[in-house]
Computed example of a mutant assay.
Amino acid sequence: MATNEILGRPGTGYIRSLDGLRALAVIIVILSHAEVAGFGGGKTGVLIFFVLSGYLITSILLRELDRTDRLSLKRFYARRFLRLYPALIIVTAATAAIAAVLLTRTANPSAQSTLNALPSVLLYFNNWVPIFAPGTDMGLFSHFWSLAVEEQFYVVWPLLLLAIYKWRRARGVLLVALIGALLSIVFKVFVWDGGGSRQGGTDFASDGLLLGCALAAFLAISTPPKWMGRWLFWVALASLALATTVGYSGSGDPAAYELFGRVFWPVAVLAATAVVFGLATGRAPRVAVRVLELRGMVYLGRISYGMYLWHILVLTAARFVTDSPLLLAAITLVVTIGVASASFYLVERPFLRRKQRYENDPSAANADEAQYGSRTTATQP
């Protein structure tokens, strides 16, 4: 990831602030898992990742279709594999090794659950396991549900997008993505019964991905009206903050969990889309852009995939040191950044270079390198 392009409207190139937004998202998730006060609705960080994923991938695919009127699925899936799987293998192996060691010393139920979850994690269907087998504990892989959601999206969406594009080009993509997102939101608000780990279902979580897809298609075919300005960004940012601080996205409190799914999730995913829109079109307030473009924020955005992968393992180890949420969060952030940086330079970056053989558009290739696997998280945000 020597360069880290993120696409706005096709042809606009690198948008540093979107990397900063990615950093903000992973920090929200980590603070939530560390149980820091005010971050009970930390799943909003994952929703930001979902919107970014849909937006970025669709921008890349539409650019290729617009330029060549063809889509190389082989190149696309090869890029996804080389971008996501090497780091996943390393984290999974390390986590499984630690779980196996724990089992040799004590009958640790979480360790056994972690080992039991290995096949579903490696095959990217672990988000469905707690849904079809209620009460199943995914152990130290509990946060990997969002990675499964995104990978399932990567498998299906390019095929669907190609068919839609041949039908009605980018306008058809916009229409289908909006309808799909609306159906997902309606399901949450009016149909969902609030039970179990349903929030991890791909159908439940597809609204953010599809809104990101719709945004990419919208920006590819039209110039946004002037009324979509800074005020929309501030309202969206305030809504995200409200969902994060007031909402509760863990399943420990069923009533609060259901409220998050029915109310705060839809609010947060719409707000995340508006924030990405503001940054991608240059209509976000300058002060917000400057903060997100700080060198440290951009760097954390670049390594956010590794941070997401490693942070639960680091957090679990840090709990042996302290019970203070703030100190726990601080230790987890510092160590996670270090481990994720090592993962980035030693594992991810070499494979990203190998990935270039599957590219036919250097700018799209660079944009692809920024993708979360994310990445951006059943019962945990």
Results as ranks from 00 to 15, higher is better:
N4C: 10
T12P: 04
Y14M: 13
I15Q: 10
R16D: 12
L18G: 03
A23N: 02
A23R: 04
L24Y: 11
A25Y: 05
A25F: 06
I28Q: 04
I28W: 10
E35R: 15
V36Q: 06
F39K: 10
K43Q: 14
I57T: 08
I60Q: 09
L61H: 09
R63G: 11
D69G: 09
L71N: 05
F76R: 04
Y77P: 02
F81G: 07
L88N: 02
I89L: 15
I90Q: 00
A96E: 01
T114G: 03
P119D: 04
Y124F: 15
Y124H: 13
W128P: 02
V129G: 01
F132Y: 12
T136M: 09
F141V: 04
F144R: 01
A148V: 08
Q152S: 01
F153V: 05
P158S: 11
L160I: 15
L162F: 15
A163Y: 12
K166V: 04
R168S: 13
R169Y: 13
R169W: 11
R169N: 08
A170H: 12
L174T: 03
S184A: 15
D193E: 10
D193Q: 09
G195L: 13
A205P: 07
A205V: 10
D207V: 07
L210E: 01
L211P: 08
L215I: 08
F218L: 15
I221S: 06
I221C: 08
T223P: 03
W227Y: 11
W231V: 12
W231P: 01
A236F: 04
A238Q: 05
L242W: 15
A243G: 06
V246A: 10
S251R: 13
G252P: 05
V263E: 03
F264L: 11
W265I: 14
A268K: 06
V269E: 11
L270T: 04
V275L: 05
G278A: 13
L279D: 06
A280Q: 05
A280I: 07
A288N: 05
A288G: 02
G301L: 09
G301Q: 05
R302Y: 09
W310C: 00
H311K: 00
I312Y: 00
V314G: 00
R319P: 02
V321M: 02
A330K: 01
I331C: 00
V335H: 00
T336A: 00
R349V: 10
Y358V: 06
P362D: 09
S363I: 14
A365N: 09
A367Y: 06
D368F: 15
D368K: 07
A370I: 12
Q371C: 14
T376F: 15
Q380Y: 14
